[in-house]
Nucleic acid binder design. Structure first.
Lengths: 214, 214
DNA sequence: GTCTATAGCGTGATAGAC
DNA sequence: GTCTATCACGCTATAGAC
C-alpha cells in the first residue's frame, strides 16, 4: 500500500526517510560548487521546501551532517584507491603510479568530498569515530603500496609515505582550488599530473638507490 | 604635547591609528591559533575593549581586513624566500633546496599567514589588487630558481615549478594542519622535510636527465 | 577623525505543538 | 516526521556623540 503512492509522496514531501538523503545530496552539491563555508542548514532546508528546523531531526547539527558526509567520502575514496591498485600491473612502482593517479583524479572529480576529507576547515570531524574508521583503509593502502616499493630495506618508509601523500595532496589541492592556472592548452593538467608522478617515482627510486628505469 | 601622554593614551584607548594595528595583530593571532573561520570582527572588538562597530571605521568589512593581512603575509613571505635564495650557494639545486626549506619552515612557523595565503577559505582575496601584487614576487622567485635548474633545455619548466610548489604546499599543509602525525621522536618533522626535498630534487634531476649527485 | 548605539538580516540550535 | 516559535550570535550599515 505504501509502494503504490511512494513516487507521488516523494514528490510532495520528504517523509519516510527521503529527507535525510535529500539533505545529504543537497549539501554535497553546495560543498562541490561553493565550498564548505557556504553550507547552511537553513538554506538547505529552504531549497528542499521544508522548514528550517527539519534537518535537526535527521542530524544532531551541522557538524554531524558534515561528519556523515565525510565518512561516506572516505569509504568511497578508499574503494576507488583499492580498485585502482588492484588493477595495476604486478610491480611496486606501477602500483604507486596507479595509486597516485587515482588519488589525484578522485580529488579533482569529487571536489566536495575531497574538501570534506582534507580541506582546512576547522570542523573537527576527526572526533567522530565513524570518520576515523572510514579513513583508516585509505591510509593502509598507501602504507602497503609504499612497503612494496621500499622492499625489505624499509629505509624511511614512513617518510616516503608522507612525501607521496604530500605531493598528491598538494597537486590535488592547488589544481582543485584553482591556485595553479594553466596558460596553455587543455592537456596541461594531465601533463602536470604525469610529470608529477614521474618525478615522485624517480625521486623515490633515487632515494632508495634503485636504478632509474623500472 | 601629544607625545607626552602618548603612552597613557594608548593604554586607555586606541585613538590615532593604534586600533587599526591592534585589530590586525589580534586577528592574525586568532587565525594562528584557531583558524580563519574563527575570526569574528565583533569578538576582536570586544577583546580590544572597543565597540563592536569600531573596526568598520578602519576596514570596510571582514573581507578587507583579511585582504590586508593576506597582502602583508605575501610581502613577508616573499622577503623570506628572497633572503633564503640569496644566502644559498651558487648552484641551481642548492637554491631550490634553500627555497623549499624556507617555504616549508615559513609556513609552519607562520601558520596564520600561510592559511591566509594558501588556505582553502572561500574568501576571494585574489580579487583585491593589493593581494595580487603582493603575491607576484613569490611566484617570480620560484620561476627563476626553477629556470636555473632546467637550464637552457626548458623542458617542462612550468610543470616542474608547479610540482615543486605542490610538494612544498602539501608538506606544509599536512604537517601544519596536523594531518600527518609523528609517532617517533621530535626530529621526525625535520627528517620528513629533509627526505622530501631530497626526493624532489633527485626526481627533478632524473626527469631532466642529469646525473644523480650534485 | 574616531568611537558608540542601534537596527536589519542570516545562521545554529532548542522546545514544544501538530 | 515535521512545523512554529524563540534565543543567541554573527556581519553589516547608518546615525549621531565626542
Amino acid at each position: 500500500m505504501m509502494s503504490q503512492s511512494a513516487d507521488l509522496e516523494a514528490v510532495r514531501s520528504y517523509h519516510h526517510g527521503d529527507l535525510r538523503r535529500a539533505i545529504l545530496e543537497s549539501t554535497l552539491e553546495i560543498i562541490d560548487k561553493q565550498g564548505l563555508e557556504a553550507v547552511s542548514l537553513r538554506a538547505v532546508a529552504r531549497r528542499l521546501g521544508v522548514s528550517e528546523a527539519a534537518p535537526y531531526h535527521h542530524f544532531s547539527g551541522k557538524q554531524e551532517l558534515l561528519a556523515v558526509l565525510a565518512a561516506d567520502a572516505y569509504r568511497s575514496f578508499g574503494e576507488c584507491l583499492t580498485t585502482a591498485v588492484g588493477s595495476a600491473a604486478d610491480d611496486p612502482f606501477a602500483r604507486l603510479n596507479a595509486l597516485a593517479r587515482a588519488y589525484i583524479e578522485y580529488g579533482l572529480e569529487s571536489r566536495g568530498r575531497y574538501r570534506l576529507m582534507f580541506g582546512n576547515h576547522m570542523v573537527d570531524l576527526g572526533e567522530y569515530e565513524e570518520v576515523q574508521v572510514a579513513g583508516r583503509p585509505t591510509r593502509a593502502i598507501l602504507e602497503s603500496v609504499i612497503a612494496g616499493c621500499v622492499g625489505s630495506a624499509k629505509v624511511d618508509a614512513a617518510a616516503i609515505e608522507n612525501i607521496s601523500w604530500s605531493l598528491c595532496h598538494g597537486l590535488t589541492s592547488l589544481i582543485g582550488e584553482s591556485e595553479i592556472v594553466f596558460d596553455g592548452g587543455s592537456g596541461d593538467g594531465e601533463r602536470l599530473i604525469e610529470v608529477g608522478i614521474s618525478i615522485l617515482i624517480a625521486g623515490i627510486r633515487a632515494h632508495l638507490g634503485l636504478p632509474a628505469a623500472s
